[in-house]
Nucleic acid binder design. Structure first.
Length: 446
RNA sequence: GUGGUUGUAGCUCAGUUGGUUAGAGCGCCGGAUUGUGGUUCCGGAGGUCGUGGGUUCGACCCCCAUCAUCCACCCCA
């Protein structure tokens, strides 16, 4: 059997992990500065916690964990006999892999409501699993990175999260555009167009605007049974998309006006800061069918053509599904894999990592190898990432190894060096070589 | 879940209408060079042709199934 990993999963090399850590470390520093604390939840949740939270499609994409022990004996015999997988599942599986970080977070908040104080601010960086069919940039196992605050309806947090986006991407060295809007404005448009019951269909269509264009959006709405007169009205509103123009267009809609007001409050907060990236109102922002109820946002790279690098919004009643009513939350998510891809394409990762090996020691016989081990220990005590070739092999072999590990320096230790204490320090890039004492070498490599 | 693509050496890929011993480049190992890598030259190792079945005198090649891969759709990150 050829060794391989399961469908939709991947190995990560040391280099890739290093880059990902750079991203996460950068994000963590920003989150902590804004007062967010990390939490972690289990890889597995009870299936009852997960099912029904992501719609019927989502339930199918849940990875289920087979019960331990004699699970067949306890299985639903009727479902088993009729080969009804869906009906059989609850009796043979009581756990599933985490599908996202939001639902476990909601469960966490409700479960620990007496131990946490609101507003509760947390961030969470963990892998999630989906039994989706893999595709470009889509895997069955991937990292999510969420920042949320629950237990407050203050629009200050909307602004704060936009600032976090701004600062985080600036620190990563990326230029982005942060697009913000409000679900209530979409509700307002649907009301103003006289199709409040078709709001979801309209939203899904508008969301695709930059992908399929205005004509495509119109055909899609037509197909979903939205009357031509309404479509024209919607198109009109979408094309006059300043907040001021919207105030007139949505004058008849209470929800629409509320959405505009909320957005203005957010912009007012933001005007007090000095954002490094563009922050724009984007009326076409819709964010799929998700549970967002107010503020919504999305981040796009200005340097590379790619889907969004992150998104989020406010959701009323996140914890309602677990029996805790009236707790509002707002949060954003960083698409770790896409941020990684963009940075890779732009060569935005710092070239040398602190985790890289600085120097490799090379010895020629057993005596110098033993001596070199002493020098190695001292280098490491001086906090220098150092390594020694494990045996006194041929020089060519050792040099080749140094090359393949991309070590910037090599220290050669033969009998001459051992006796004089003057070690040969070779710069692998320039090829230059000098005699130095260990102390001098430590100073150079520090 | 739907439709399509590809699967041959560690990697990237050739392989003729089905024909006898399946190739290249890169990488790897050894030597030229017993204290100098990244260049060059010479030599070598490495394959159940994804897996299982079928058709055939004969299958890397044709058929079926299965697994994996990549791509599009649905949906999503």
């Amino acid at each position: 059997m050829k060794p391989s990993v399961p469908k939709g999963t991947r190995d990560f090399s040391a280099e890739e992990v290093g880059k990902r850590h750079f991203i996460f470390d950068t994000l963590r520093k920003v989150f902590v500065k804004y007062g967010y604390r990390p939490i972690e939840t289990p890889t597995m949740e009870k299936l009852e916690t997960l099912t029904g939270k992501y719609g019927e499609e989502g339930d199918q994409l849940l990875f289920k964990v087979l019960n331990n022990g004699d699970f067949l004996n306890k299985a639903d015999k009727e479902a088993l006999a009729s080969l009804d997988s869906k009906k059989l599942t609850p009796s043979i599986s009581k756990r599933g892999l985490r599908y996202d970080l939001t639902v476990p977070f909601a469960r966490y908040v409700v479960q620990h409501q007496n131990d946490i104080s609101f507003p509760f601010k947390r961030y969470q960086i963990q892998p999630v699993w989906r039994a989706d069919r893999p595709q470009k940039g889509r895997y069955q196992e991937f990292y999510q990175c969420d920042v949320d605050v629950v237990g407050s309806t203050s629009l200050m947090y909307e602004a704060e999260l936009v600032q976090i986006y701004d600062e985080a991407f600036a620190n990563l060295g990326l230029e982005v555009e942060i697009k913000i809007s409000n679900r209530k404005i979409l509700t307002g448009i649907a009301e103003a167009a006289g199709i409040p019951d078709k709001m979801v269909e309209m939203t899904v269509a508008i969301d695709k605007l930059d992908k399929i264009g205005m004509d495509g959006v119109k055909t899609e709405m037509e197909r979903k049974g939205i009357p031509t007169a309404s479509i024209e009205k919607i198109e009109n509103i979408l094309e006059n998309n300043t907040l001021d123009a919207l105030k007139y267009a949505l004058a008849s809609s209470e929800a629409g006006l509320k959405g505009i007001e909320e957005l203005e409050t957010v912009f007012n907060y933001l005007s007090k800061g000095n954002a490094k990236n563009d922050i724009k109102f984007d009326i076409t922002l819709a964010r799929g069918l998700s549970y967002y109820t107010g503020f919504i946002c999305e981040v796009a790279s200005k340097q590379v053509k790619m889907g969004s690098l992150g998104g989020g919004g406010r959701y009323d009643d996140l914890t309602g599904m677990f029996g805790l009513k009236g707790v509002s939350g707002v949060g954003v998510s960083f698409g770790a894999a896409r941020v990684y891809d963009v940075m890779n394409e732009l060569n935005a990762f710092p070239s040398a990592s602190e985790a890289d090996l600085k120097v490799l020691l090379i010895a020629f016989d057993q005596a110098t190898h033993d001596f070199a081990f002493e020098q190695l220990t001292q280098l490491r005590q001086a906090a220098i990432n150092a390594d020694l070739y494990p045996e006194p092999a041929k020089m060519k072999k050792q040099m080749k190894y140094a090359n393949s590990r991309k070590v910037p320096y090599v220290v050669l230790i033969g009998s001459q060096e051992m006796e004089s204490g003057q070690l040969s320090l070779k710069n692998m890039e320039t090829g230059e070589q000098d005699s130095k004492t260990l102390k001098e070498i430590i100073d150079i490599l520090k």
